[in-house]
């Protein structure tokens, strides 16, 4: 554990003279938070896995999942990670125009994903899978809903960045803020990488 402390970090904005890591407080805070989030999504995913075969009299996951559709929306979210990292890269270069462009693109791709989720949910409901239909349905909507809320919060943060960029207050020296929002965004993407494979692609029980 001692070697954790001797980690040499790049000259960060909030370098203290002390014996600390020299890492930016803000970035460390975000990573600590993401470590915590692993346990949150782990709990939701486990709940889903325990309940995925308990569909009572309602539709089974294997019957109702639309893999091609979800594949497309997963791809959209995956690509939003690329645009996110391009936004950061642009700001690091001082390229405000491209930073704005990619921030907005990322937010739009995220919204597209959320739109897809809304479509998926309404389709499921139409096909008889309501929130209260079975333990499976409750667990499914709760897990993907929590993920969707995380994406939505990310979109709000991205739009806040975009607007403050329009106001001229998001400059090259603020790239760490963009990086931190990016960390959150990529994490949400990573969670979906997991969900997409384990919940959708691994064959689910059918009725």
């Amino acid at each position: 554990m001692a070697d954790v402390m001797t980690t040499e970090a790049p000259a960060a904005a909030h370098q203290s003279e002390g014996a600390g890591t020299g890492i930016s407080n803000n970035k460390l805070l975000m990573w600590v938070f993401l470590g915590s989030e692993c346990l949150l999504f782990g709990g939701l995913i486990s709940t889903y896995l325990i309940y995925r075969s308990r569909f009572h009299t309602g539709p089974a996951p294997g019957d109702i999942f639309d893999i091609p559709f979800t594949s497309v929306s997963s791809f959209v979210l995956l690509m939003s990670s690329l645009t996110m990292v391009l936004a950061l890269s642009a700001l690091n270069r001082g390229d405000i125009r491209n930073n704005r462009l990619w921030l907005l693109t990322t937010a739009l791709l995220g919204s597209l994903f959320i739109g897809g989720q809304v479509y998926e949910f309404t389709t499921f409901v139409r096909e008889g899978l309501g929130y209260t239909t079975s333990p499976f349905s409750s667990a499914f909507f709760t897990l993907t809903g929590f993920h969707g809320i995380h994406v939505s919060v990310g979109i709000v943060m991205l739009m806040s960045l975009f607007i403050s960029s329009l106001r001229g207050s998001l400059r090259q020296e603020h790239s760490e803020t963009v990086e931190i929002v990016g960390l959150y965004w990529h994490f949400v993407d990573i969670v979906w990488i997991f969900i997409f494979t384990v919940i959708y692609l691994v064959p689910s029980p059918t009725s």
């Binding site: 954790v4 402390m5 003279e17 002390g18 014996a19 600390g20 020299g22 407080n25």
Partner: peptide, 9 residues
């Protein structure tokens, strides 16, 4: 992690 005084390992 970050706020320790100098020498405080």
């Amino acid at each position: 992690l970050n706020m320790r005084a100098p020498g405080m390992t």
